[in-house]
């Protein structure tokens, strides 16, 4: 997104902006009205609610910043944000490493069937997350596909109920994220690499660069923008994980897969702690804005 934005800023400098027109406000009004009522006002209300102790029914009591302090001090909430960070590894870092490798290979080798491959690896992106979760529940079930596969390989000692295991439930959820995001990242990087002028590779080869040097010196710097977009998309997706956790584990076993988004829902509608839920939601929003700002700042600075 940021890439598009900065390029349009550039376009603006070259392009004379339109004539001054007050009628613009009329065109904006319908969109802005819905947006203000159903998005801007609620986020303001979220900040307001987060300053109260409220069960959703009786009168709330003023809590000041207590709900925010709890995010740092409450062990369960700290754990939820910690789990989100673990998910970032699975949603963002894993797909980026796999995606860079795959895209570099594909960009080099003129393989046939690239279009088909793209269709297949991108497919997870369009399937409803609830359906994805149902499918992976089946894969991870005690009598499911994964254990069947392990059994067939003679690795019966490794079989377990993956989503019911305190150690393995969070990585199991994370792997679903890796599965979900890798296709997106690969296709994004492929598009970027296909725009690298071949002369750059020829120059590198004349300088005697090997495949690895070539990747580090030519490919990687050229797709910096794509990497920033990929990280922004995947990190946000990791931090916002909700449907997947709701359907696969409901935060369990214990709280080993609880994540901020699930805590928002659980506290507001399960525990009657609306103020705390709102504070988590606001914090999550701030964290998301901050992270995407930092990612794009770093990418911009390294380009210039």
């Amino acid at each position: 997104m940021i890439r598009t934005r900065s390029s349009s800023v550039r376009a603006r400098a070259g392009h004379p902006p339109g004539e001054p027109r007050r009628v613009a406000f009329l065109y904006l009004l319908p969109a802005f009205a819905v947006y203000a009522v159903f998005l801007l006002y609620p986020i303001g209300r979220a900040v307001h609610l987060s300053l109260f102790d409220w069960d959703g029914l009786s009168l709330g009591t003023w809590a000041g910043l207590d709900n925010y302090v709890a995010i740092v001090e409450d062990e369960g909430l700290r754990a939820a944000f910690g789990h989100a960070l673990v998910l970032v590894l699975f949603y963002a870092v894993g797909p980026l490493v796999i995606g860079l490798t795959l895209a570099a290979i594909l960009n080099h080798a003129k393989v046939r069937g690239l279009g088909f491959f793209r269709t297949v690896v991108f497919l997870p992106q369009v399937v409803a997350m609830v359906v994805v979760a149902v499918a992976w529940r089946r894969v991870y079930a005690p009598d499911g596909t994964l254990n069947g596969l392990l059994g067939a390989l003679g690795l019966d000692s490794l079989t377990r109920g993956w989503l019911g295991d305190h150690t393995f439930a969070l990585p199991a959820v994370g792997v679903v994220g890796t599965w979900f995001e890798t296709g997106l990242v690969t296709v994004l990087l492929l598009a970027g690499m296909s725009r690298i002028p071949p002369e750059l590779y020829e120059a590198a080869r004349l300088d005697g660069a090997g495949a690895l040097r070539e990747f580090l010196a030519v490919t990687l710097p050229s797709v910096r923008g794509e990497i920033a977009v990929a990280l922004t998309l995947t990190v946000i997706a990791a931090l916002r994980t909700f449907d997947l956790v709701y359907v696969t584990t409901r935060g369990g076993p214990g709280n080993s897969t609880s994540v901020p988004s699930y805590e928002v829902y659980h506290r507001a509608f399960g525990l009657g702690q609306v103020g705390s839920a709102a504070a988590i939601g606001v914090t999550l929003t701030v964290v998301i804005f901050a992270i995407s700002f930092v990612i794009n700042r770093v990418a911009d600075r390294e380009v210039s």
């Binding site: 998005l39 609620p42 986020i43 209300r45 916002r240 988004s261 928002v264 507001a268 939601g281 929003t285």
Partner: peptide, 19 residues
């Protein structure tokens, strides 16, 4: 408007429900 693109629906859904 750009704010809304990144706004997680989790943050707005709770106050919206009670209002």
């Amino acid at each position: 408007f750009l704010l809304g693109i990144m706004m997680p629906s989790e943050a707005i859904a709770v106050p919206l429900y009670f209002d």
